[in-house]
Design a protein around this nucleic acid. Sequence first.
RNA 1: GCGCCGGUAGCUCAGGGGAUAGAGCAGGGGACUUCUAAUCCUCAGGUCGCAGGUUCGAAUCCUGCCCGGCGCGCCA
Length: 569
Amino acid sequence: MIEERLVTLLAEAIAKAAPSLGAATPLPVPELQRPRQKGFGDFTTNVAMVIASQAGVDPRATAAAIVEALPSAAFLAKAEVAGPGFINLWTTDEWLHDVMRQIAVEGDRYGAGAPTGRRIQVEFVSANPTGPLTIGHARNAAIGDALARLLTFAGHEVEREYYFNDAGGQMDRFGASVEARYLEALGRDAEVPEDGYHGDYVADLAREVLASEGPGLADLPEEERFVRLREGGAGIAMEHIRATLARFGVTFDSYFLEASLLERGEIAHAIERLREGGFVYDAEGATWFRSTAFGDDKDRVAIRSDGTHTYFGADIAYVLDKFSRGFDHLIYVWGADHHGDVARVRGVATALGFDADRVEIVLYQFVSFLRGGQPVKMSKRAGTFVSLDELIDEVGADAARFHLLLFSNDRPMNFDIAEVARQTLENPVYYVQYGHARIASILRRASDEGIELRPIEDADLTLLASEPEQDLMRALADGPGTIAIAAEHRAPHRLTHAAQDLAATFHRFYTECRVVSDDDSLTQARLWLSSATKQVLGTLLDLVGVSAPERMDRLDDADGSVGGAADGG
RNA sequence: GCGCCGGUAGCUCAGGGGAUAGAGCAGGGGACUUCUAAUCCUCAGGUCGCAGGUUCGAAUCCUGCCCGGCGCGCCA
Protein backbone atom coordinates (compact mmCIF):
# COMPACT_ATOMS: atom_id res chain seq x y z
CA MET A 1 0.00 0.00 0.00
CA ILE A 2 1.37 3.36 0.99
CA GLU A 3 4.73 1.86 1.90
CA GLU A 4 5.24 0.41 -1.56
CA ARG A 5 4.34 3.68 -3.19
CA LEU A 6 6.79 5.58 -1.01
CA VAL A 7 9.55 3.08 -1.71
CA THR A 8 8.94 3.43 -5.44
CA LEU A 9 9.07 7.19 -5.13
CA LEU A 10 12.32 7.05 -3.18
CA ALA A 11 13.86 4.61 -5.62
CA GLU A 12 13.07 6.98 -8.45
CA ALA A 13 14.63 9.86 -6.59
CA ILE A 14 17.73 7.87 -5.78
CA ALA A 15 18.14 6.78 -9.39
CA LYS A 16 17.81 10.37 -10.48
CA ALA A 17 20.19 11.73 -7.86
CA ALA A 18 22.71 8.90 -7.98
CA PRO A 19 25.02 10.30 -10.68
CA SER A 20 25.63 13.44 -8.73
CA LEU A 21 26.06 11.49 -5.50
CA GLY A 22 28.93 9.44 -6.78
CA ALA A 23 27.08 6.44 -5.41
CA ALA A 24 28.09 2.99 -6.45
CA THR A 25 25.66 0.72 -8.23
CA PRO A 26 23.82 -1.36 -7.34
CA LEU A 27 21.91 1.18 -5.37
CA PRO A 28 20.36 -0.02 -2.13
CA VAL A 29 16.63 -0.58 -1.98
CA PRO A 30 15.23 1.99 0.42
CA GLU A 31 13.75 0.59 3.58
CA LEU A 32 11.01 2.39 5.39
CA GLN A 33 10.48 2.45 9.11
CA ARG A 34 7.79 3.90 11.28
CA PRO A 35 9.69 6.37 13.42
CA ARG A 36 9.42 5.77 17.12
CA GLN A 37 8.78 9.41 17.71
CA LYS A 38 6.12 11.71 16.43
CA GLY A 39 7.73 14.69 14.82
CA PHE A 40 9.87 12.44 12.66
CA GLY A 41 7.08 12.01 10.16
CA ASP A 42 4.86 9.11 9.22
CA PHE A 43 7.70 7.14 7.72
CA THR A 44 11.44 7.46 7.75
CA THR A 45 14.34 5.98 5.86
CA ASN A 46 18.06 5.76 6.47
CA VAL A 47 18.83 5.03 2.83
CA ALA A 48 20.82 8.23 2.38
CA MET A 49 23.15 7.22 5.19
CA VAL A 50 23.61 3.80 3.66
CA ILE A 51 24.50 5.30 0.28
CA ALA A 52 26.73 7.96 1.77
CA SER A 53 28.55 5.42 3.85
CA GLN A 54 29.26 3.31 0.75
CA ALA A 55 30.36 6.28 -1.34
CA GLY A 56 32.21 8.00 1.46
CA VAL A 57 30.30 11.24 1.10
CA ASP A 58 28.31 13.49 3.38
CA PRO A 59 25.08 11.77 4.46
CA ARG A 60 23.06 14.94 4.99
CA ALA A 61 23.99 16.24 1.55
CA THR A 62 23.04 12.89 0.08
CA ALA A 63 19.70 12.99 1.84
CA ALA A 64 19.11 16.51 0.61
CA ALA A 65 19.85 15.48 -2.97
CA ILE A 66 17.40 12.61 -2.72
CA VAL A 67 14.71 14.82 -1.24
CA GLU A 68 15.35 17.33 -4.00
CA ALA A 69 14.87 14.61 -6.61
CA LEU A 70 11.66 13.26 -5.12
CA PRO A 71 8.85 13.41 -7.69
CA SER A 72 5.74 15.10 -6.43
CA ALA A 73 2.90 12.79 -5.48
CA ALA A 74 -0.56 13.41 -4.14
CA PHE A 75 -0.04 11.17 -1.14
CA LEU A 76 3.27 12.74 -0.10
CA ALA A 77 2.78 15.89 1.92
CA LYS A 78 6.32 16.66 2.99
CA ALA A 79 9.83 15.27 3.01
CA GLU A 80 12.73 16.58 4.98
CA VAL A 81 16.25 15.77 6.03
CA ALA A 82 16.75 15.26 9.72
CA GLY A 83 19.37 14.23 12.21
CA PRO A 84 22.47 12.57 10.81
CA GLY A 85 20.84 11.99 7.41
CA PHE A 86 17.40 10.52 7.86
CA ILE A 87 14.75 11.35 5.31
CA ASN A 88 11.47 11.85 7.13
CA LEU A 89 8.28 11.60 5.14
CA TRP A 90 4.87 12.97 5.93
CA THR A 91 1.98 11.46 4.06
CA THR A 92 -1.55 12.69 3.59
CA ASP A 93 -4.22 11.01 5.71
CA GLU A 94 -5.61 9.11 2.77
CA TRP A 95 -3.53 6.05 3.60
CA LEU A 96 -4.97 5.96 7.10
CA HIS A 97 -8.45 6.07 5.66
CA ASP A 98 -7.46 3.23 3.36
CA VAL A 99 -6.45 1.26 6.43
CA MET A 100 -9.83 1.92 8.01
CA ARG A 101 -11.69 0.77 4.93
CA GLN A 102 -9.44 -2.24 4.67
CA ILE A 103 -10.26 -3.27 8.23
CA ALA A 104 -13.95 -2.80 7.55
CA VAL A 105 -13.76 -5.02 4.49
CA GLU A 106 -11.37 -7.67 5.81
CA GLY A 107 -12.69 -7.93 9.34
CA ASP A 108 -10.90 -10.65 11.27
CA ARG A 109 -8.70 -11.29 8.24
CA TYR A 110 -7.08 -7.86 8.54
CA GLY A 111 -3.37 -8.47 8.88
CA ALA A 112 -3.64 -12.10 7.81
CA GLY A 113 -1.29 -13.52 5.22
CA ALA A 114 -2.35 -15.03 1.92
CA PRO A 115 -2.21 -18.82 1.82
CA THR A 116 1.37 -19.96 1.44
CA GLY A 117 0.66 -23.62 0.83
CA ARG A 118 3.40 -24.47 3.33
CA ARG A 119 2.57 -27.25 5.76
CA ILE A 120 4.04 -26.59 9.17
CA GLN A 121 3.81 -28.86 12.16
CA VAL A 122 4.05 -27.36 15.61
CA GLU A 123 4.73 -29.94 18.28
CA PHE A 124 4.39 -28.73 21.82
CA VAL A 125 3.53 -29.54 25.44
CA SER A 126 4.31 -33.26 24.92
CA ALA A 127 4.43 -33.96 28.66
CA ASN A 128 4.60 -37.56 29.79
CA PRO A 129 1.22 -39.11 30.57
CA THR A 130 2.29 -39.93 34.10
CA GLY A 131 -0.03 -37.48 35.75
CA PRO A 132 -1.63 -34.09 35.40
CA LEU A 133 -0.07 -31.19 33.58
CA THR A 134 1.64 -28.86 35.99
CA ILE A 135 2.42 -25.19 35.93
CA GLY A 136 5.77 -26.33 34.57
CA HIS A 137 4.06 -26.98 31.25
CA ALA A 138 2.19 -23.72 31.14
CA ARG A 139 4.71 -21.62 29.26
CA ASN A 140 5.18 -24.30 26.66
CA ALA A 141 1.45 -24.56 26.09
CA ALA A 142 1.02 -20.79 25.88
CA ILE A 143 3.91 -20.28 23.47
CA GLY A 144 3.19 -23.30 21.30
CA ASP A 145 -0.45 -22.48 20.92
CA ALA A 146 0.21 -18.82 20.16
CA LEU A 147 2.79 -19.80 17.55
CA ALA A 148 0.34 -22.18 15.93
CA ARG A 149 -2.26 -19.42 15.84
CA LEU A 150 0.24 -16.91 14.48
CA LEU A 151 1.52 -19.18 11.74
CA THR A 152 -2.00 -20.11 10.74
CA PHE A 153 -2.85 -16.42 10.56
CA ALA A 154 0.28 -15.85 8.49
CA GLY A 155 -1.18 -18.17 5.87
CA HIS A 156 0.48 -21.49 6.59
CA GLU A 157 -1.24 -24.83 6.95
CA VAL A 158 -0.51 -25.61 10.56
CA GLU A 159 -0.95 -28.88 12.38
CA ARG A 160 -0.59 -29.05 16.14
CA GLU A 161 0.73 -32.23 17.62
CA TYR A 162 1.19 -33.56 21.12
CA TYR A 163 3.78 -36.32 21.52
CA PHE A 164 3.09 -38.71 24.36
CA ASN A 165 6.15 -40.42 25.78
CA ASP A 166 4.16 -43.48 26.66
CA ALA A 167 7.09 -45.87 26.61
CA GLY A 168 10.24 -46.18 28.64
CA GLY A 169 11.39 -46.34 32.21
CA GLN A 170 9.35 -43.47 33.57
CA MET A 171 6.22 -45.11 32.28
CA ASP A 172 7.17 -48.40 33.91
CA ARG A 173 7.68 -46.69 37.24
CA PHE A 174 4.37 -44.94 36.75
CA GLY A 175 2.72 -48.24 35.82
CA ALA A 176 4.05 -49.95 38.93
CA SER A 177 2.69 -47.06 41.00
CA VAL A 178 -0.75 -47.29 39.45
CA GLU A 179 -0.68 -51.03 39.96
CA ALA A 180 0.12 -50.64 43.65
CA ARG A 181 -2.66 -48.09 44.15
CA TYR A 182 -5.09 -50.25 42.25
CA LEU A 183 -4.36 -53.21 44.49
CA GLU A 184 -4.57 -50.99 47.55
CA ALA A 185 -7.97 -49.81 46.43
CA LEU A 186 -9.05 -53.43 46.45
CA GLY A 187 -7.78 -53.83 49.99
CA ARG A 188 -4.71 -55.80 49.03
CA ASP A 189 -1.22 -55.29 50.23
CA ALA A 190 0.88 -53.32 47.82
CA GLU A 191 3.44 -50.60 47.92
CA VAL A 192 4.41 -47.87 45.52
CA PRO A 193 8.05 -48.46 44.58
CA GLU A 194 10.52 -46.06 46.09
CA ASP A 195 11.39 -44.61 42.70
CA GLY A 196 7.71 -44.54 41.70
CA TYR A 197 5.12 -41.81 41.72
CA HIS A 198 3.87 -41.09 45.21
CA GLY A 199 1.37 -38.34 44.61
CA ASP A 200 -2.24 -38.79 45.63
CA TYR A 201 -3.28 -38.29 42.06
CA VAL A 202 -1.94 -41.77 41.23
CA ALA A 203 -4.43 -43.27 43.69
CA ASP A 204 -7.15 -41.26 41.98
CA LEU A 205 -6.07 -42.55 38.60
CA ALA A 206 -6.01 -46.10 39.95
CA ARG A 207 -9.56 -45.72 41.24
CA GLU A 208 -10.64 -44.47 37.83
CA VAL A 209 -9.06 -47.51 36.23
CA LEU A 210 -10.86 -49.64 38.78
CA ALA A 211 -14.13 -47.93 37.96
CA SER A 212 -13.77 -48.45 34.24
CA GLU A 213 -12.04 -51.84 34.14
CA GLY A 214 -13.43 -53.43 37.24
CA PRO A 215 -11.48 -55.44 39.81
CA GLY A 216 -10.63 -58.24 37.41
CA LEU A 217 -7.18 -56.95 36.52
CA ALA A 218 -5.88 -57.85 39.96
CA ASP A 219 -5.96 -61.55 39.27
CA LEU A 220 -4.32 -61.48 35.86
CA PRO A 221 -0.82 -62.86 35.46
CA GLU A 222 1.61 -60.34 36.84
CA GLU A 223 3.07 -59.20 33.57
CA GLU A 224 -0.30 -58.68 31.95
CA ARG A 225 -1.70 -57.01 35.02
CA PHE A 226 1.18 -54.59 35.05
CA VAL A 227 0.82 -53.72 31.38
CA ARG A 228 -2.95 -53.29 31.61
CA LEU A 229 -2.66 -50.99 34.61
CA ARG A 230 0.18 -49.00 33.14
CA GLU A 231 -1.76 -48.43 29.95
CA GLY A 232 -5.03 -47.89 31.74
CA GLY A 233 -3.44 -45.28 34.00
CA ALA A 234 -1.71 -43.57 31.10
CA GLY A 235 -4.89 -43.51 29.07
CA ILE A 236 -6.79 -41.80 31.84
CA ALA A 237 -3.91 -39.43 32.48
CA MET A 238 -4.00 -38.49 28.78
CA GLU A 239 -7.70 -37.79 28.97
CA HIS A 240 -7.11 -35.51 31.95
CA ILE A 241 -4.35 -33.74 30.09
CA ARG A 242 -6.62 -33.12 27.12
CA ALA A 243 -9.32 -31.79 29.41
CA THR A 244 -6.90 -29.46 31.15
CA LEU A 245 -5.58 -28.16 27.85
CA ALA A 246 -9.11 -27.55 26.67
CA ARG A 247 -9.73 -25.43 29.76
CA PHE A 248 -6.54 -23.57 28.90
CA GLY A 249 -7.88 -22.94 25.41
CA VAL A 250 -5.45 -25.30 23.71
CA THR A 251 -6.44 -28.07 21.35
CA PHE A 252 -4.40 -30.40 19.17
CA ASP A 253 -4.96 -31.86 15.74
CA SER A 254 -3.15 -35.02 16.62
CA TYR A 255 -1.83 -36.91 19.58
CA PHE A 256 1.13 -39.05 18.71
CA LEU A 257 2.12 -42.06 20.78
CA GLU A 258 5.77 -42.92 21.19
CA ALA A 259 4.73 -46.57 21.57
CA SER A 260 3.33 -46.52 18.06
CA LEU A 261 6.80 -45.92 16.67
CA LEU A 262 7.93 -49.14 18.27
CA GLU A 263 4.85 -51.08 17.25
CA ARG A 264 5.28 -50.14 13.61
CA GLY A 265 8.99 -50.91 13.64
CA GLU A 266 9.78 -47.32 12.76
CA ILE A 267 12.63 -47.03 15.20
CA ALA A 268 14.47 -50.00 13.73
CA HIS A 269 13.71 -48.74 10.25
CA ALA A 270 15.01 -45.23 10.90
CA ILE A 271 18.14 -46.53 12.52
CA GLU A 272 18.83 -48.87 9.63
CA ARG A 273 18.47 -45.97 7.26
CA LEU A 274 21.02 -44.01 9.26
CA ARG A 275 23.28 -47.02 9.38
CA GLU A 276 23.27 -47.19 5.59
CA GLY A 277 24.45 -43.62 5.53
CA GLY A 278 27.22 -44.45 7.97
CA PHE A 279 25.76 -42.38 10.79
CA VAL A 280 25.08 -45.29 13.10
CA TYR A 281 27.42 -47.93 14.52
CA ASP A 282 27.46 -50.59 17.22
CA ALA A 283 29.77 -50.42 20.21
CA GLU A 284 29.77 -51.72 23.76
CA GLY A 285 26.63 -53.65 22.97
CA ALA A 286 24.66 -50.51 22.16
CA THR A 287 23.76 -48.73 18.94
CA TRP A 288 25.15 -45.23 18.59
CA PHE A 289 24.33 -42.23 16.47
CA ARG A 290 27.37 -40.37 15.20
CA SER A 291 26.22 -37.00 16.52
CA THR A 292 29.81 -35.76 16.68
CA ALA A 293 29.44 -35.35 12.91
CA PHE A 294 27.02 -32.53 13.76
CA GLY A 295 28.98 -30.69 16.39
CA ASP A 296 28.03 -32.77 19.41
CA ASP A 297 30.84 -33.41 21.87
CA LYS A 298 30.15 -37.14 21.94
CA ASP A 299 28.13 -39.73 20.08
CA ARG A 300 24.78 -40.72 21.58
CA VAL A 301 23.14 -44.03 22.27
CA ALA A 302 19.97 -44.75 20.34
CA ILE A 303 19.48 -48.40 21.30
CA ARG A 304 20.70 -49.51 24.70
CA SER A 305 22.63 -52.70 25.27
CA ASP A 306 19.43 -54.23 26.65
CA GLY A 307 17.70 -53.64 23.33
CA THR A 308 15.38 -50.88 24.43
CA HIS A 309 15.50 -47.51 22.73
CA THR A 310 16.46 -44.26 24.38
CA TYR A 311 14.38 -41.11 24.23
CA PHE A 312 16.74 -39.98 21.55
CA GLY A 313 16.30 -43.24 19.64
CA ALA A 314 12.58 -42.63 19.47
CA ASP A 315 13.28 -39.06 18.40
CA ILE A 316 15.15 -40.32 15.36
CA ALA A 317 12.15 -42.31 14.21
CA TYR A 318 9.82 -39.47 15.11
CA VAL A 319 11.63 -36.97 12.89
CA LEU A 320 11.47 -39.38 9.99
CA ASP A 321 7.82 -40.04 10.67
CA LYS A 322 7.04 -36.32 10.70
CA PHE A 323 8.74 -35.75 7.37
CA SER A 324 7.06 -38.79 5.88
CA ARG A 325 3.75 -37.10 6.66
CA GLY A 326 4.64 -34.38 4.19
CA PHE A 327 5.38 -31.39 6.39
CA ASP A 328 7.53 -28.70 4.85
CA HIS A 329 8.68 -27.43 8.19
CA LEU A 330 8.81 -28.79 11.72
CA ILE A 331 8.70 -26.69 14.86
CA TYR A 332 9.48 -28.14 18.26
CA VAL A 333 8.74 -26.07 21.34
CA TRP A 334 11.22 -26.99 24.06
CA GLY A 335 12.26 -25.73 27.45
CA ALA A 336 15.80 -24.47 27.75
CA ASP A 337 16.84 -27.63 29.56
CA HIS A 338 16.68 -29.39 26.20
CA HIS A 339 18.89 -26.99 24.31
CA GLY A 340 21.63 -29.60 24.23
CA ASP A 341 19.38 -31.82 22.11
CA VAL A 342 18.88 -29.24 19.40
CA ALA A 343 21.99 -29.98 17.36
CA ARG A 344 21.37 -33.71 17.66
CA VAL A 345 17.84 -33.67 16.34
CA ARG A 346 18.75 -31.37 13.51
CA GLY A 347 21.75 -33.60 12.85
CA VAL A 348 19.43 -36.58 12.59
CA ALA A 349 17.35 -34.73 10.03
CA THR A 350 20.45 -33.94 8.02
CA ALA A 351 21.66 -37.52 8.24
CA LEU A 352 18.28 -38.69 7.02
CA GLY A 353 18.65 -36.44 4.01
CA PHE A 354 16.50 -33.51 5.04
CA ASP A 355 17.62 -29.92 5.14
CA ALA A 356 18.30 -29.05 8.77
CA ASP A 357 16.66 -25.67 8.22
CA ARG A 358 13.36 -27.48 8.06
CA VAL A 359 13.74 -28.52 11.69
CA GLU A 360 13.28 -25.57 13.96
CA ILE A 361 13.48 -25.64 17.73
CA VAL A 362 11.81 -22.82 19.61
CA LEU A 363 13.39 -22.66 23.04
CA TYR A 364 12.06 -20.81 26.00
CA GLN A 365 13.67 -20.19 29.36
CA PHE A 366 12.31 -21.46 32.61
CA VAL A 367 9.56 -19.99 34.71
CA SER A 368 10.08 -19.54 38.41
CA PHE A 369 6.74 -19.92 40.05
CA LEU A 370 6.22 -18.04 43.26
CA ARG A 371 3.36 -17.52 45.60
CA GLY A 372 3.47 -14.29 47.49
CA GLY A 373 7.19 -14.02 46.84
CA GLN A 374 7.95 -17.56 48.04
CA PRO A 375 9.25 -20.09 45.48
CA VAL A 376 6.89 -22.96 44.72
CA LYS A 377 8.83 -26.20 45.01
CA MET A 378 7.71 -29.02 42.84
CA SER A 379 8.44 -32.69 42.36
CA LYS A 380 6.16 -34.68 40.16
CA ARG A 381 7.20 -38.04 41.49
CA ALA A 382 6.86 -36.96 45.10
CA GLY A 383 3.48 -35.59 44.14
CA THR A 384 4.16 -32.08 45.33
CA PHE A 385 3.32 -29.75 42.51
CA VAL A 386 0.85 -27.16 41.43
CA SER A 387 -1.24 -28.47 38.59
CA LEU A 388 -2.16 -26.42 35.58
CA ASP A 389 -5.78 -26.92 36.60
CA GLU A 390 -5.10 -25.28 39.95
CA LEU A 391 -3.39 -22.42 38.19
CA ILE A 392 -6.42 -21.95 35.97
CA ASP A 393 -8.70 -22.10 39.00
CA GLU A 394 -6.63 -19.54 40.80
CA VAL A 395 -5.76 -16.94 38.20
CA GLY A 396 -7.93 -17.83 35.20
CA ALA A 397 -6.81 -19.06 31.80
CA ASP A 398 -6.82 -15.58 30.27
CA ALA A 399 -4.66 -13.97 32.93
CA ALA A 400 -2.31 -16.95 33.00
CA ARG A 401 -1.82 -17.03 29.25
CA PHE A 402 -1.44 -13.31 28.87
CA HIS A 403 1.10 -13.18 31.67
CA LEU A 404 3.06 -16.11 30.24
CA LEU A 405 3.29 -14.30 26.91
CA LEU A 406 4.40 -11.00 28.32
CA PHE A 407 8.07 -11.87 28.08
CA SER A 408 10.49 -12.79 25.36
CA ASN A 409 10.97 -16.58 25.05
CA ASP A 410 14.64 -16.06 25.83
CA ARG A 411 13.98 -14.45 29.13
CA PRO A 412 13.73 -16.44 32.31
CA MET A 413 10.57 -15.23 33.98
CA ASN A 414 8.86 -15.14 37.31
CA PHE A 415 5.23 -15.99 37.75
CA ASP A 416 3.86 -15.10 41.12
CA ILE A 417 0.58 -16.94 41.32
CA ALA A 418 -0.75 -14.83 44.14
CA GLU A 419 0.13 -11.65 42.30
CA VAL A 420 -1.34 -12.61 38.94
CA ALA A 421 -4.46 -13.83 40.71
CA ARG A 422 -4.78 -10.72 42.82
CA GLN A 423 -3.98 -8.29 40.05
CA THR A 424 -7.57 -7.83 39.04
CA LEU A 425 -7.01 -4.09 39.05
CA GLU A 426 -3.53 -3.86 37.66
CA ASN A 427 -3.04 -6.97 35.55
CA PRO A 428 -2.46 -5.84 31.98
CA VAL A 429 -4.75 -8.52 30.61
CA TYR A 430 -7.75 -6.79 32.15
CA TYR A 431 -6.59 -3.46 30.85
CA VAL A 432 -6.60 -4.83 27.32
CA GLN A 433 -9.83 -6.78 27.73
CA TYR A 434 -11.46 -3.74 29.23
CA GLY A 435 -10.48 -1.76 26.16
CA HIS A 436 -12.30 -4.30 24.03
CA ALA A 437 -15.34 -4.39 26.31
CA ARG A 438 -15.43 -0.63 26.43
CA ILE A 439 -15.63 -0.41 22.66
CA ALA A 440 -18.35 -3.03 22.63
CA SER A 441 -20.18 -0.94 25.16
CA ILE A 442 -19.97 2.13 22.95
CA LEU A 443 -21.25 0.23 19.96
CA ARG A 444 -24.13 -1.09 22.08
CA ARG A 445 -24.85 2.41 23.25
CA ALA A 446 -25.02 3.71 19.71
CA SER A 447 -27.27 0.89 18.70
CA ASP A 448 -29.51 1.48 21.74
CA GLU A 449 -29.89 5.07 20.68
CA GLY A 450 -31.03 3.91 17.27
CA ILE A 451 -27.86 5.00 15.55
CA GLU A 452 -27.15 2.85 12.56
CA LEU A 453 -23.61 2.33 11.36
CA ARG A 454 -23.79 3.25 7.69
CA PRO A 455 -21.35 1.92 5.06
CA ILE A 456 -17.82 3.14 5.61
CA GLU A 457 -17.73 4.50 2.05
CA ASP A 458 -20.29 7.07 3.21
CA ALA A 459 -18.36 8.07 6.31
CA ASP A 460 -16.30 11.24 6.25
CA LEU A 461 -13.07 9.93 7.68
CA THR A 462 -11.35 13.29 7.24
CA LEU A 463 -13.20 14.30 10.39
CA LEU A 464 -10.81 12.07 12.32
CA ALA A 465 -8.28 14.84 12.50
CA SER A 466 -7.42 15.24 16.17
CA GLU A 467 -4.25 13.82 17.60
CA PRO A 468 -5.79 10.92 19.52
CA GLU A 469 -7.75 9.91 16.42
CA GLN A 470 -4.70 10.09 14.22
CA ASP A 471 -2.66 8.15 16.74
CA LEU A 472 -5.29 5.47 16.87
CA MET A 473 -5.46 5.11 13.10
CA ARG A 474 -1.67 4.84 12.95
CA ALA A 475 -1.71 2.18 15.64
CA LEU A 476 -4.24 0.22 13.59
CA ALA A 477 -2.05 0.60 10.53
CA ASP A 478 0.88 -0.89 12.46
CA GLY A 479 -1.05 -4.01 13.42
CA PRO A 480 -0.24 -6.21 10.42
CA GLY A 481 3.46 -5.35 10.57
CA THR A 482 3.62 -6.22 14.24
CA ILE A 483 1.85 -9.51 13.67
CA ALA A 484 4.17 -10.38 10.78
CA ILE A 485 7.24 -9.68 12.91
CA ALA A 486 5.84 -11.70 15.79
CA ALA A 487 5.30 -14.63 13.44
CA GLU A 488 8.72 -14.37 11.80
CA HIS A 489 10.59 -14.07 15.08
CA ARG A 490 8.42 -16.67 16.85
CA ALA A 491 7.86 -13.92 19.36
CA PRO A 492 4.29 -14.00 20.64
CA HIS A 493 5.17 -11.56 23.39
CA ARG A 494 5.12 -8.85 20.78
CA LEU A 495 1.41 -9.42 20.50
CA THR A 496 0.64 -8.88 24.15
CA HIS A 497 2.72 -5.73 24.06
CA ALA A 498 1.02 -4.52 20.90
CA ALA A 499 -2.35 -5.22 22.47
CA GLN A 500 -1.43 -3.13 25.51
CA ASP A 501 -0.23 -0.29 23.31
CA LEU A 502 -3.34 -0.36 21.19
CA ALA A 503 -5.59 -0.46 24.24
CA ALA A 504 -3.74 2.51 25.71
CA THR A 505 -4.10 4.46 22.48
CA PHE A 506 -7.79 3.71 22.47
CA HIS A 507 -8.32 4.69 26.10
CA ARG A 508 -6.64 8.00 25.35
CA PHE A 509 -8.91 8.52 22.36
CA TYR A 510 -11.92 7.63 24.49
CA THR A 511 -11.01 10.20 27.10
CA GLU A 512 -10.66 13.00 24.63
CA CYS A 513 -13.16 12.15 21.94
CA ARG A 514 -16.83 11.61 22.53
CA VAL A 515 -17.92 8.91 20.07
CA VAL A 516 -21.69 9.03 20.21
CA SER A 517 -22.70 12.66 19.91
CA ASP A 518 -25.19 14.98 18.24
CA ASP A 519 -22.84 15.40 15.32
CA ASP A 520 -24.01 12.65 13.01
CA SER A 521 -21.07 12.66 10.60
CA LEU A 522 -18.52 12.72 13.39
CA THR A 523 -20.38 9.95 15.20
CA GLN A 524 -20.28 7.79 12.10
CA ALA A 525 -16.56 8.35 11.60
CA ARG A 526 -15.76 7.66 15.24
CA LEU A 527 -17.96 4.60 15.36
CA TRP A 528 -15.99 3.22 12.44
CA LEU A 529 -12.75 4.04 14.20
CA SER A 530 -13.98 2.32 17.36
CA SER A 531 -15.19 -0.66 15.44
CA ALA A 532 -11.88 -1.01 13.60
CA THR A 533 -10.02 -0.83 16.89
CA LYS A 534 -12.24 -3.51 18.35
CA GLN A 535 -11.43 -5.68 15.39
CA VAL A 536 -7.67 -5.33 15.66
CA LEU A 537 -7.68 -5.68 19.44
CA GLY A 538 -9.79 -8.79 19.06
CA THR A 539 -7.36 -10.23 16.55
CA LEU A 540 -4.38 -9.61 18.81
CA LEU A 541 -6.12 -11.24 21.76
CA ASP A 542 -7.23 -14.16 19.66
CA LEU A 543 -3.68 -14.77 18.47
CA VAL A 544 -2.48 -15.18 22.04
CA GLY A 545 -5.50 -17.29 22.93
CA VAL A 546 -7.08 -14.78 25.28
CA SER A 547 -10.77 -14.03 25.14
CA ALA A 548 -12.06 -10.65 23.99
CA PRO A 549 -15.11 -9.96 26.16
CA GLU A 550 -18.08 -7.95 24.94
CA ARG A 551 -18.65 -6.65 28.43
CA MET A 552 -16.90 -6.52 31.74
CA ASP A 553 -18.63 -5.70 34.96
CA ARG A 554 -17.45 -2.58 36.56
CA LEU A 555 -15.45 -3.08 39.72
CA ASP A 556 -16.96 -0.70 42.20
CA ASP A 557 -15.04 -0.26 45.37
CA ALA A 558 -17.99 -1.28 47.49
CA ASP A 559 -16.22 -0.67 50.75
CA GLY A 560 -16.14 2.99 49.87
CA SER A 561 -12.64 3.30 51.18
CA VAL A 562 -10.49 6.08 49.89
CA GLY A 563 -7.36 4.93 48.16
CA GLY A 564 -8.61 1.39 47.85
CA ALA A 565 -5.91 -0.09 50.03
CA ALA A 566 -7.90 -0.41 53.23
CA ASP A 567 -8.20 -4.15 52.90
CA GLY A 568 -4.44 -4.46 52.82
CA GLY A 569 -4.35 -6.54 49.69
C1' G B 1 35.85 -26.85 32.20
C1' C B 2 32.56 -26.46 27.64
C1' G B 3 27.74 -24.84 25.55
C1' C B 4 22.96 -22.00 25.51
C1' C B 5 20.03 -17.87 27.74
C1' G B 6 19.68 -13.58 30.68
C1' G B 7 21.89 -8.91 33.33
C1' U B 8 18.24 -1.88 30.70
C1' A B 9 14.24 3.05 35.94
C1' G B 10 12.92 1.13 43.07
C1' C B 11 10.25 -3.69 40.93
C1' U B 12 8.63 -6.64 36.42
C1' C B 13 10.06 -6.19 31.53
C1' A B 14 10.14 -4.12 25.98
C1' G B 15 13.64 -2.32 22.36
C1' G B 16 18.60 -6.13 19.66
C1' G B 17 23.08 -1.00 14.19
C1' G B 18 20.29 4.78 13.90
C1' A B 19 17.77 10.53 16.09
C1' U B 20 16.20 12.85 22.98
C1' A B 21 16.52 4.45 25.48
C1' G B 22 10.33 3.07 26.31
C1' A B 23 5.98 0.63 28.99
C1' G B 24 3.46 -1.36 33.26
C1' C B 25 3.64 -1.51 38.53
C1' A B 26 5.26 1.07 42.87
C1' G B 27 5.87 6.72 44.45
C1' G B 28 4.21 12.49 44.24
C1' G B 29 0.22 15.70 42.09
C1' G B 30 -4.40 16.20 39.29
C1' A B 31 -9.25 14.70 36.35
C1' C B 32 -15.81 11.34 37.21
C1' U B 33 -23.29 16.48 35.87
C1' U B 34 -19.80 12.00 30.72
C1' C B 35 -20.46 6.30 25.51
C1' U B 36 -17.79 1.72 31.92
C1' A B 37 -12.71 6.13 36.47
C1' A B 38 -10.93 -1.79 35.46
C1' U B 39 -9.89 4.97 32.55
C1' C B 40 -7.00 9.45 31.53
C1' C B 41 -3.34 13.56 32.40
C1' U B 42 1.12 15.08 34.92
C1' C B 43 5.78 14.89 37.88
C1' A B 44 9.86 12.16 39.49
C1' G B 45 12.96 8.17 38.42
C1' G B 46 18.76 5.47 33.85
C1' U B 47 27.11 4.46 34.58
C1' C B 48 21.53 -0.05 29.25
C1' G B 49 26.57 -5.69 34.31
C1' C B 50 32.22 -4.11 33.63
C1' A B 51 36.38 -3.21 30.18
C1' G B 52 38.20 -2.94 25.38
C1' G B 53 37.17 -3.05 19.96
C1' U B 54 34.43 -2.41 14.99
C1' U B 55 31.37 1.83 12.84
C1' C B 56 29.74 8.26 10.40
C1' G B 57 26.64 6.16 14.50
C1' A B 58 26.58 0.73 19.70
C1' A B 59 21.74 -0.71 24.85
C1' U B 60 22.03 -3.37 19.99
C1' C B 61 27.72 -6.30 16.54
C1' C B 62 32.90 -8.58 18.14
C1' U B 63 36.49 -10.05 22.22
C1' G B 64 37.52 -10.66 27.35
C1' C B 65 35.74 -10.58 32.30
C1' C B 66 31.88 -10.53 36.42
C1' C B 67 26.98 -12.19 38.26
C1' G B 68 22.50 -15.38 37.72
C1' G B 69 19.57 -19.52 35.27
C1' C B 70 19.80 -24.07 32.40
C1' G B 71 22.34 -28.04 30.07
C1' C B 72 26.70 -31.27 29.08
C1' G B 73 23.52 -39.78 30.90
C1' C B 74 22.86 -46.63 27.79
C1' C B 75 17.25 -40.22 32.35
C1' A B 76 12.97 -38.14 30.15
